[in-house]
Nucleic acid binder design. Sequence first.
RNA 1: CGGUGAGUAGCGCAGCUUGGUAGCGCACUUGUUUUGGGUACAAGGGGUCGCAGGUUCAAAUCCUGUCUCACCGACCA
Length: 569
Amino acid sequence: MRSSQYLLATQKETPADAEVISHQLMLRAGLIRKLASGLYTWLPSGLRVLNKVAGIVREEMDKAGAIEVLMPVVQPADLWQESGRWEEYGPELLRIKDRHQRDFVLGPTHEEVITDLVKREVSSYKQLPINLYQIQTKFRDEVRPRFGVMRGREFTMKDAYSFHLSQECLEKTYQDMYQAYCNIFERIGLEYRPVIADTGSIGGSMSHEFHVLAASGEDDIAFSNASEFAANVEMAEALAPAGERAAPTAEMQLVDTPKAKTINELVEQFNLPVEKTIKTLIVKGSEEAGSELVALLVRGDHELNEIKADKLPEVASPLTFASEEEIRAAIGAGPGSLGPVNLNMPVIADRAVSLCSDFGAGANQDGKHYFNINWERDVALPKVADIRNVQAGDPSPDGRGTLEIKRGIEVGHIFQLGEKYSQAMNCGVLTESGKHQVLTMGCYGIGVSRIVAAAIEQNHDKYGIIWPDAIAPFKVALIPMNMHKSHRIQEAAEALYKQLQQAGIEVLFDDRKERPGVMFADMELMGIPHHIVVGERNLDENQVEYKCRRSGEKQLLDLNKVLSFIQAL
RNA sequence: CGGUGAGUAGCGCAGCUUGGUAGCGCACUUGUUUUGGGUACAAGGGGUCGCAGGUUCAAAUCCUGUCUCACCGACCA
């Protein structure tokens, strides 16, 4: 490709609304342009990268035995009503009407369509298992699109769906997909980790997310420093602290704390150790709890995990915090003065809380706290559950090592779905014994467009993007110095260009009438991994300069060795 | 969905308080210059100031409505 006949679209200045580095660089390097909130046009260089990623995904999926299909983006509402998600799915689901006023949705995912397809096309156990996938545009009307294509509303996703007669068979395909995903991320050249993820309300099934580690990630991932354990913080189990609860050492006392509304204030003003304080959070109760409100206790230095709390039978789902008015009406004191002593509602304490002794908490009277509270002696120990987020330094749930926490970008998610959709939509086959049996399903997603952004988050420097070779828009940048003044430069550059092209190497020939600095800067910004610089000085020796984008190392190459050198990279 | 802020040339911004017919940098075009790291000089093109309504002799500027975009929040009492 000649840059003079290409849409380079690089720019010097960073648009003001781009926050994360990948978004900034994608705009500056001319990969994408915003059309509207969460909607992006892929410019030529961006599309080349996107296609490279999609190509790798496709190859590895095929290798793992999956079969490619392509389903419509627009889906009839009937299917969503059949599965129950027409009601379940929130405003993220974009609903539209056609000219006959029939309801449709813009597909955020394709479980319904694929289940409907398999129901129609697969009728015998002999055709199983089957794993169908597509690489296609999805639409989710995100609450808050941000970070460019990292969280867009329209995005490219690879989604695969497998169908099985048995759990064993599903687990086999699940493992195959797990391996295929590892192969994909390794080939692309990303630092990634598979992590245990939320199994959701479907129950019993297994789920892993694949995260690319980057500071700008939107998820917290907990890792063991001594084992392979890795889990989304949402999921990671917080073990009870080691040891028994210490015996009480002091009498409970009521203390005036008019200026202490938060744990921080309490700790500062009364010189309490933060791990000897307890936060009392009031949430809506479920029918099972038999109470409008339920209290959750976590230690002052811990955070409530809403996903864990949401799963408690006593807690109304979705988890809803009580308003200040509701709290006052029920307890007679406001937030900031709440505690377990004399609390007239069901209480659930975190494991760590159950091991506290001589601790401080609100007295359920405004401006007062109890200090030196002890379980059993001053108040009965309530139900105990794991309801907090793990923190760095906590013991790993697998019993080996302690946890570290890093940010991750979720680029893949595999899931054992079970029968949620096949049951609702009656998708089954005849078994060997001639009986109808509902199939069990797995689903496997990869955020193809998100990978492009994630790769930049991990691979950039102050000059711009540094693409891993596997997904670079071009492999080689051919940069002639002052070609428009020098015939021999032009001849040499044209000859090299032709040679590289004929060898099937993707080369961007910068034949613009630009100063060297401009060319270097653009090629570096775009992250092209290998640069060949043709200049008068070296041409006298029949040589050109090679520069590696990533390491910055330079070396001289004989003209007749350029092709073999590049091919060997 | 709540809070805050912003919409003026392709991009980044000034002008608005105190109304008087729009400006700067980058980018773009032309010429000269420079030639291994975003060169310099000169000339030039490009804007119904988000949209609609109102006040006024006169509105980018004041008022009302509306749309769009961004950031923060939607959890620790």
